[in-house]
Amino acid sequence: MDVLLRLLGMLAVLLVGTGLRSVGVLDSSRTGRLNAATYYVALPSLVFVATYDRSIAALLSGALVVAVLAALLATAGIAWVLHRNRPAARRSVAVVQSYHSNLGYLGLPLVAATFDPDVTALASVVLGVALLVQVPLTVAVLSVVNGADTSVVREASTLARNPVLIALVAGILIGAVGAPVPVAVASGLDRLGSLVLPLALLCVGASLRVDRAVADPGATGWVLALKLGCAPAIAWATLVGFGVDAATLTAGVVMLGTPTAVSTYVFATELGGDEAFASRNVFVTTVASVASLYVLIGLVG
């Protein structure tokens, strides 16, 4: 019941963000500042605090890396086959939204609020590995299918400057060498990290568009099934096959069972995808994930 109440509370904050945008409180400028505070301060703080006091052996699990890659790439491949006959702009969006998860703004904060620090540390690794794969893959799929012009060097440079990845690497390195972190610093970062969930939910809510007309419900249904069902199922099967412990299984399955990231709408807008279709899918998978994550958490928790 606690998990269900937490998920329903998250949905309520999301809808508050949507409502604040609709009445003009969270306009583009304020949402941008809120997003910057979340992306550059709160989320990196959470990642660093979750990893800085752990050994590399405790964090970098080969099974977890393989499970993340298997879930992302296999789901992308299945989506490619299922949507191969759709118009290019819609096909590209359907493929990327089937695997591209909202790991930073929903996944990791949810794990941190629901499970113990061991699971949160492993979830931070899932976030880092997935960022290195799903962002370049999404840009590549949208660019190739839609014939959009993009710079691989620019995207690689952007990824290298990602504050979440920098915080993850810093945490892993400090944990590897056993360098002490002052208690006051760790405590301050921990408090900043605790702000991720409310800030991120408001940002996501302010980005959701619920006024789009329903288009191609069949394609949206497949996106929903692949993102919330297929991806975590592949991760689960892979991790169980490796015989991992409960914390690793929980981190991998819950993180990869999160809804489609809002950033896919941004990528679709910039790289020739179907914007209205992308917006609708983000909203549908986000709302539906309340039920699917409740089931997943119950199964692994």
Rank of each mutant, 00 (worst) to 15 (best):
Asp2Thr: 14
Leu4Arg: 13
Leu4Lys: 12
Leu7Lys: 00
Leu8Val: 15
Leu8Glu: 10
Leu11Tyr: 10
Leu11Pro: 08
Val13Arg: 04
Leu14Trp: 05
Leu14Met: 02
Thr18Met: 15
Gly19Phe: 08
Arg21Leu: 07
Ser22Phe: 06
Ser22Ala: 14
Ser29Ala: 15
Asn35Gly: 09
Asn35Phe: 07
Ala37Arg: 03
Tyr39Gly: 06
Ala42Lys: 04
Pro44Ile: 02
Pro44Gly: 03
Ser45Thr: 06
Val47Asp: 01
Val47Phe: 02
Phe48Gly: 00
Val49Gly: 00
Ala50Arg: 00
Ala50Gly: 03
Tyr52Thr: 08
Tyr52Lys: 06
Tyr52Ala: 04
Arg54His: 09
Ser55Gln: 07
Ser55Asn: 06
Ser55Cys: 07
Ile56Ser: 12
Ala58Cys: 09
Ser61Ala: 09
Ala70Phe: 07
Ala70Tyr: 10
Leu73Tyr: 10
Ala76Glu: 12
Ala76Asn: 11
Ile78Leu: 15
Ile78Ser: 09
Trp80His: 15
His83Gln: 12
His83Arg: 12
Ala88Pro: 13
Ala89Glu: 15
Arg90Gly: 09
Ala94Ile: 10
Val96Glu: 08
Gln97Asn: 15
Ser98Arg: 07
Ser98Val: 12
His100Gln: 14
Asn102Trp: 01
Tyr105Val: 01
Ala113Trp: 00
Ala113Glu: 02
Phe115Pro: 05
Val119Glu: 03
Val119Ser: 04
Ala121Pro: 00
Val125Asn: 01
Gly128Arg: 02
Leu131Pro: 02
Leu131Lys: 08
Val133Pro: 11
Val135Trp: 08
Val135Glu: 07
Ala140Asn: 06
Val145Ala: 11
Thr150His: 15
Val152Leu: 14
Val153Pro: 08
Val153Gln: 12
Ala156Arg: 14
Ser157His: 14
Arg161Ala: 12
Pro163Ala: 05
Val164Asp: 01
Ile166Gly: 03
Leu168Ala: 01
Ala170Gly: 01
Ile172Tyr: 05
Gly178Ile: 05
Val181Arg: 09
Val183Thr: 13
Ala184Trp: 10
Ala184Cys: 05
Ala186Arg: 08
Ser187Asp: 06
Gly188Asp: 01
Leu189Ser: 00
Leu189Asn: 00
Leu192Asn: 00
Gly193Thr: 05
Gly193Cys: 05
Leu195Gly: 03
Leu195Trp: 13
Val196Pro: 00
Leu201Asn: 04
Val204Gly: 01
Val204Ile: 15
Leu208Tyr: 09
Leu208Asp: 03
Arg212Phe: 14
Val214Arg: 11
Val214Pro: 13
Ala215Asn: 14
Asp216Gln: 06
Pro217Gly: 08
Gly218Met: 14
Ala219Val: 12
Thr220Leu: 15
Leu224Asn: 11
Ala231Arg: 07
Pro232His: 03
Ile234Pro: 10
Ala237Phe: 06
Thr238Asn: 06
Thr238Met: 05
Leu239Ile: 03
Leu239Arg: 00
Gly241Met: 09
Ala246Cys: 08
Ala247Trp: 01
Ala247Glu: 02
Leu249Thr: 09
Ala251Val: 04
Ala251Asn: 09
Val253Tyr: 12
Gly257Cys: 05
Thr260Met: 07
Thr260Gln: 04
Val262Lys: 02
Ser263Glu: 12
Phe267Pro: 09
Phe267Leu: 15
Ala268Val: 10
Gly272Thr: 11
Gly273Ser: 10
Asp274Cys: 10
Phe277Val: 06
Arg280Gln: 15
Asn281Val: 09
Val287Cys: 04
Val290Glu: 07
Ala291Trp: 13
Ser292Asp: 02
Tyr294Asn: 11
Val295Arg: 03
Leu296Ile: 11
Gly298Asp: 06
Gly301His: 13
